[in-house]
Design a protein around this nucleic acid. Structure first.
Length: 426
RNA sequence: GGAGAGGUGACCGAGCAGGUUUAAGGUGCACGCCUGCUAAGCGUGUGUGGGUCAAAAGCUCACCGUGGGUUCAAAUCCCACCCUCUCCGCCA
């Protein structure tokens, strides 16, 4: 959420942000409602103040046995006006709040302005595309050969986009999650959180998924709960409506959860194999920081996520998103894209964003600085990383001429078996 | 799901047969005084948000789980909901 006072004083800047992000929001309506609200508030305050004063007079007169019936009937009218004003005020505030929730975050000035991903900037390449002496298979072919996945049965159980990992495929999945969690906990000093995957509407609004993306969320209608699209939602809201002392910052959480996305409107786009799913697993990194340090923290999370790919020795690139490709709540985002040799393309495995105080305002997360002053802290997060596309890159990168798959060194510590002919155990 | 108890400021805790309580008192915290030092004691201050103001001060409004309602007036009365605890039932 953008500060209403800021909108009032910098309307053009907000207008540009909405435009550059390809969003729609009615700024004029907000400004008009704001003005009306302040007018109503003033009138309401005046009348309430009068009511308080007369109330004291009534008390005194009654005590002296004087007649107060005239005052009462006079005040009865004032009360009626107050009720009417209050109703208008409540209505105005509700409308204003609802509209405010539709204003996207303002991109950081450094972010390249652009309509879509064609304006994104590749800012880094790490490693090289592996060379094969044979034509590499894609992950689906490899999975079939080695019985690592069963997508048809997943579709039978739940519909398309709900994968079943089988045998060693499942073991690798579990090991990867464990590896990434331990890596961030031990090397990067994160605290692990195991959180609910069903959350309330308020929680979903706090991080900015609602109201905009309701159609993309799975919803449990009977209880008005939502399945989380990312651990960002429950983890960031962990401190909702709280005030943290500055000396506790930064706070860094890592959390593994399954993630659920309806992907409404994206059917047919890059859906082959594990590329786009309704349910997948992800390890997420979340930071709560003092505002002046948030861009430093953004780089830190990017490095933390990159190190996972480095440890697995996978080629990847880092992309800085342009304004048109930024998410609703983000001020600046990096995507990390890993190379998938079988598919012959880069796949997004991590998205790292600084939300500045946008989520903190929505979720009401503040901090108290050393002078005792209150302010909204900054929140950030990044995938560290999502497993399906990571798995694609792993299988496709570590495949052999025989169609088997070697295990990366770091996963061997997790007793991950090599994937060979004899791996087909069922 | 049923029955009961409860939800008040950083914390504890009074107020709850409506009106000088614009939330008592205590603890903690901050500053000051006193003291050889510490402790004790004394004094002062001590929330959040909105409005007004160039800004600060000041003034003012709102906030006693949340949302409605009754009333000239609500922490206090009424209704609905949420959360916590205890017991029962049901399920793991």
């Amino acid at each position: 959420m953008i500060d209403l006072k800021y909108i009032r004083t910098h309307p053009q800047e907000v207008r540009n942000a909405i435009l550059n992000k390809n969003e729609k929001a009615n700024l004029d309506a907000i400004l008009a409602l704001d003005e009306n609200r302040r007018k109503l508030q003033y009138e309401y305050d005046q009348l309430r103040s009068k009511q308080h004063q007369v109330s004291q007079i009534i008390v005194l007169k009654k005590r002296n046995g004087e007649d107060v019936s005239e005052l009462l009937s006079e005040m009865s009218e004032v009360a009626e006006q107050i009720r009417a004003l209050n109703a208008q005020l409540t209505e105005t505030n509700t409308q204003l709040e609802n509209l405010l929730l539709t204003i996207p975050n303002i991109p950081h000035p450094d972010v390249p302005i652009g309509k879509d991903e064609s304006a994104n900037r590749v800012i880094k390449l790490w490693g090289e595309k592996p060379n094969f002496t044979f034509t590499p298979l894609d992950h689906l072919e490899l999975a079939e050969k080695n019985r690592l996945l069963d997508l048809p049965r997943g579709a039978k159980i739940s519909g398309s986009g709900f994968p079943v990992y089988t045998g060693i495929g499942a073991i690798w999945e579990r090991a990867l999650i464990n590896f990434m969690l331990n890596f961030h906990i031990q090397k990067h000093n994160y605290t692990e959180l195991a959180v609910p995957v069903l959350v309330t509407r308020k929680t979903m609004t706090g991080t900015g998924q609602l109201p905009k993306l309701e159609d993309d969320m799975y919803r449990i209608e009977a209880d008005d709960l939502f399945l989380i699209p990312t651990a960002e939602v429950p983890v960031t809201n962990f401190f909702a409506d709280e005030i943290l002392p500055q000396d506790r910052l930064p706070i860094k959480f890592v959390s593994y959860t399954p993630c659920f996305r309806r992907e409404a409107g994206s059917y047919g786009k890059e859906t082959k194999g594990l590329q786009r799913l309704h349910q997948f697993n992800k390890v997420e990194l979340v930071h709560f920081v003092e505002p002046s340090t948030s861009y430093q923290a953004l780089e830190e999370i990017r490095e933390d996520a990159e190190e996972i790919l480095q440890a697995l020795n996978l080629h990847y690139r880092v992309v800085e998103l342009c304004t048109g490709d930024l998410s609703f709540a983000s001020a600046k985002t990096y995507d990390i894209e890993v190379w998938a040799p079988g598919l012959g393309k880069y796949l997004e495995v991590s998205s790292i964003s600084n939300f500045e105080d946008f989520q903190a305002r929505r979720a009401n997360i503040r901090y108290k600085d050393t002078q005792g002053k209150l302010g909204y802290l900054h929140t950030l997060n990044g995938s560290g990383v999502a497993t399906p596309r990571l798995m694609i890159a792993l299988w496709e990168t570590y495949q052999t001429k025989e169609g088997t798959i070697n295990a990366p060194e770091v996963l061997k510590e997790y007793n991950v078996p090599e994937i060979t002919e004899s791996s087909k155990r069922w």
